[in-house]
Amino acid sequence: MLIPALDLIDGRVVRLFQGDFAQKTEYPLDPVQQAQAYKAAGAEWLHLVDLDGAKDPAKRQQALLKEITQQSGLRCQAGGGIRTQQDLDDLFAAGIERVVIGSTAVNQPDRVRHWFTEYGTDAIVLALDVNIADDGKAMVATHGWQQSSELTLDNVLNRFLDVGCRHVLCTDIAKDGTLSGTNVALYQRYKALYPQIQWQASGGVSNLQDLIDLKRVNCDSAILGKSLLTGQFELQEAIACWQNA
């Protein structure tokens, strides 16, 4: 499916370029109304990134996240600085159905393995964001993409298969926010290697052909952020394109 995304800072809709807070674009949109518009256009799920929470979990936009879930009618997944079990409980209390976990899954895998057991396989999305090395390996980055790990996507993912990991949001960092096209080969490779995973492609979608290309390699979902905010296409036509690809 196609999943529209809203990145939030201080109650405002923004986009960062390749995760860089210094390269921020703000959009004159009310996040609740925008979520409702996505619902009206046919969306079923919404991806929310709490960038305040990513910087400081104490500043998580809890009230706004709850308002979006209650007012939009969309099923929501959300992330941004998820470090403790209380962070998960707070998001679930706000009506979030899936919590998106990134750096903690890389740096504290045993903790996250416990969360899979505690909350179930459908309650957690692993956000594994990668830089493609010169040798083609997908190397996982952490801490808002500011730090690189020594682990490949395979290394990290294999830690969670036996506890039922089902949803992975994978971003090619070099593509994020660029509208330069998506890394179809990345998702083709990993869907073939791990067919049991529901893969969410993120980064670089710029036109409807990108969506057709992802669908043709059996990618399960695509996250649409900047492409919708900048009017590259309308969500309604994108959904029709995806369904017919």
Rank of each mutant, 00 (worst) to 15 (best):
A54I: 09
N131D: 15
S202M: 01
D129Q: 07
C219V: 14
L88Q: 01
D20A: 09
G225Y: 02
L179E: 04
S206A: 15
V205K: 00
L128R: 03
G177Q: 01
I223C: 06
D50W: 08
L208D: 06
W242M: 11
L235K: 13
W242T: 08
I96F: 09
H47V: 13
N218C: 05
L6C: 08
T69G: 03
A43Q: 05
Y190K: 00
Q108G: 04
I96W: 09
L151Y: 10
A201E: 07
D213F: 00
I197L: 13
L235A: 14
Q36P: 04
N158F: 05
A58M: 06
K59N: 13
T171Q: 10
I9H: 08
V205W: 00
R159F: 02
D87K: 00
E118K: 14
W199R: 12
T104A: 14
E234S: 15
L65H: 08
R111L: 15
L74C: 08
E67V: 01
N207F: 08
K175G: 06
I68W: 12
L2W: 06
K66E: 15
Q34H: 07
N218K: 11
F17I: 08
S202W: 02
R98K: 15
M1T: 11
L169A: 12
H167S: 09
H114W: 11
D20P: 02
V168M: 03
H143L: 10
L16W: 07
S72A: 11
D135L: 06
E234I: 05
R15V: 00
I82L: 13
K24L: 14
A133V: 05
V49W: 05
E44K: 14
Q71L: 12
V32F: 07
A41C: 10
V156Q: 05
Q108L: 11
C170V: 05
K55M: 14
V168N: 01
